[in-house]
């Protein structure tokens, strides 16, 4: 099963892969069981060390990429997972620069599924102009507003697109390159930091309605579901407010995944869901 982890810089791709690997190695990703590792896993073990020390996983930069290749058993049978830890910086450059990342463009044709990573704390909703002062509180807000005919203080460029639009822009581009459906697991990272009591699907509907509508109207081409993933388990910036039991636990034990309705599921569930979407007999990769 060839997968793509789609997400911009620091959206939780590497952290999820690291903690999933930890869960598989330590047999806590039931019902997925690791059979064999098929590629080097140094970057995953280094990431586990970081998580164990309550430090963020060092992100994949544009020059070096890790690659998760492993064989596991699942309710769908034996499963070969091929999941590159694609650079978020490169995806960001692709969207802002309006030029395909050649590697991603080439890989799209053979993909069996994708995970779209959105970070709940870094999600930019595209605030209305009226909220400027609120957003700039204490940061030298401009004194005067320009007139209607005057230039915007900050000229438009693609990098200013809100998070929901960036995701749609990416998905629209993907659809132009594929004939077959692309199962999509939308992963809301840092789920433990999401405020409110919404389950993941409702959080997405409240915060990214345009994306939800887009996915809904492309159900055939993009069969999808939503997960809330807490790969770190808690906010490393608030260690003193986190219970000692949690900080002392192993990374794969404190990580958690919720399904779209908010039910706790296996750390491997995003992969298992993608495996379930594969046509019969094509789940082994």
């Amino acid at each position: 099963m060839k997968l793509a982890a789609l997400g911009e810089f620091a959206t939780g791709k590497s952290s999820y892969m690291v903690v999933l690997y930890g869960a598989l190695v330590n047999k806590t990703a039931d019902p997925m069981v690791l059979v064999e590792v098929l590629d080097e896993v140094g970057f995953l073990n280094r990431g586990l060390q970081e998580l164990a020390a309550n430090r963020r996983v060092t992100r994949t930069d544009s020059e070096s990429e890790g690659h998760v290749r492993l064989c596991a058993t699942s309710p769908q049978g034996e499963l070969t997972v091929d999941l590159p830890d694609r650079s978020g910086e490169r995806l960001k450059m692709m969207i802002n620069g309006r030029t395909w990342d050649p590697e991603l463009q080439t890989a799209l044709h053979g993909l069996d599924g994708a995970m779209l990573f959105l970070h709940v704390l870094q999600f930019d909703p595209g605030h209305p102009a009226e909220e400027l002062d609120l957003l700039l509180a204490g940061e030298n807000p401009p004194q005067l507003d320009p007139g209607p005919a005057e230039e915007d203080p900050v000229p438009w460029e693609p990098s200013l697109m809100p998070s929901d639009v960036r995701a749609i822009d990416l998905l629209q581009a993907l659809l132009t390159q594929r004939d077959a459906p692309l199962p999509l697991a939308v992963v809301l990272s840092a789920w433990d930091c999401a405020s409110g009591e919404h389950p993941p699907a409702a959080w997405l509907a409240a915060n990214a309605p345009l994306l939800v509508q887009f996915l809904d109207t492309h159900q055939d081409e993009l069969p999808h579901t939503v997960f809330g993933v807490s790969a770190q388990g808690f906010d490393f910036n608030n260690l003193d407010r986190t219970g000692g039991e949690l900080t002392a636990s192993d990374p794969w034990d404190r990580a958690s995944v919720l399904d779209c309705d908010g039910a706790s599921v296996s750390l491997a569930q995003p992969l298992l869901w993608l495996a379930e979407q594969q046509p019969d007999g094509e789940d082994g990769g």
């Binding site: 102009a129 400027l132 915007d152 203080p153």
Partner: peptide
């Protein structure tokens, strides 16, 4: 939509 958003540096939607 840009001049109607805070990212434009405006306070009033234009």
């Amino acid at each position: 939509a840009h001049p109607s958003r805070a990212s434009s540096g405006r306070r009033v939607r234009e």
